[in-house]
Design a protein around this nucleic acid. Structure first.
Lengths: 194, 194
DNA sequence: CTTTTTGTTGATTGACGAGTCAATAAACTT
DNA sequence: AAGTTTATTGACTCGTCAATCAACAAAAAG
């Protein structure tokens, strides 16, 4: 049976399954067997490709983060040069259906928890936060000048907060409503005089 | 040895120890033995007073939530009738040293995770959110009128987001900075014309 | 002073789960 | 054809932990 070149396929399947299972369970309390089963293989094979459960978690995290990064990059490329449009693009990408799926949001929250104990997870999350901040800052500066740092901090926290609340809500995530809340904040900040 | 009337003392010690241990561990992955040890008793006794580990978690959550509620109520009573002052009081209470301690913030995050799986935890968190929202709304309405619902939603999410980010940061929580971020948002919203 | 209630623990049970290993087999190499 | 690498799994080990239990102690009730 063994076909060659399975490694990337298996790994991808495991990463996907990890996210789904964490999302379903709503916690990191998922067994390797559950994940492996969902990915259609034995738990031994999962251990063969990833050395440990933690490695699976980290791979899943990297996947979500890189997916998010790609989405933002894409949206930013499509947006023009106008800072307002670029900011809007970042926000829309942040809540785009790709990242704002049920499981992804659930997984996201749990990655924050993972980051409390696992240094590598903390590092990954820090990268995400830095990148977001830098993106926001560069388009915020021409619009609000010296107030950019504060506004960027608030925007970052707001996005995370909206995610957090979405994770709790029952019912499907409402991307449009989420964007609306954050956009509203943004337009208010931009409209401020002084 | 057995002195009578131990129950409330033991329970209180366990609740406190639960919060500390969750905060230290940065996850719900704490054993009953750890908690019991920190509270100065055997794990068997912990099971004697609370039926299960889940009950301990819920009691800890209730404790944190009621602490928060009391703090807000107190601050609100001390504030006068001016809506601006009352809003400020709510925010300051939200980040007061009582709630904004290292362990408490860590525990808070994990209670969000707990709420994903345990219905009672979800209920408790929902109560907190509703109460916060209602408090904000009643003082927001005179100030921003029809925009109150949106602003309240954003404020709620922002507070949670700031908590979330604080949980990750290393170093001690910075209450003043946290309040500043949220207050800044608030003053901008209040200053908005239209 | 005996019985009940309350407090307390060490030891045990029973389940579950991460990670290992030996074995099997297909495909590639020489 | 013989040997090596890659894929794959069932069975097993070993540890951990929630929950239970039997037993003991002290106070309160009768």
């Amino acid at each position: 049976m063994p076909k060659l070149g399975m490694e990337p396929i298996r790994k991808a399947a495991l990463v996907k399954a990890t996210i789904v299972e964490i999302g379903r369970a709503g916690s990191l309390d998922v067994t390797v067997s559950q994940i492996a089963k969902r990915a259609g293989m034995s738990s031994a094979l999962a251990h063969h490709y990833f050395g440990s459960k933690e490695d699976m978690f980290l791979a899943a995290m990297r996947h979500i983060l890189s997916l998010y990064g790609a989405e933002v990059r894409g949206a930013l490329a499509a947006a023009g040069d106008a800072p307002e449009a670029r900011l809007q693009a970042i926000l829309r990408a942040s809540f785009s259906p790709g990242n704002f799926r049920r499981e992804a949001v659930g997984a996201w929250l749990n990655f924050y928890v993972l980051a409390q104990t696992v240094a590598e997870a903390r590092r990954l999350l820090a990268i995400y936060q830095r990148r977001l901040r830098s993106n926001l800052m560069s388009d915020l500066r021409p619009l609000v000048g010296a107030r950019a740092p504060g506004v960027a901090a608030a925007l970052g926290a707001l996005i995370d907060g909206v995610y957090l609340r979405e994770a709790l809500k029952n019912g499907p995530p409402d991307s449009a409503a989420a964007v609306a809340v954050v956009m509203d904040f943004l337009t208010t900040e931009l409209g401020k005089q002084s």
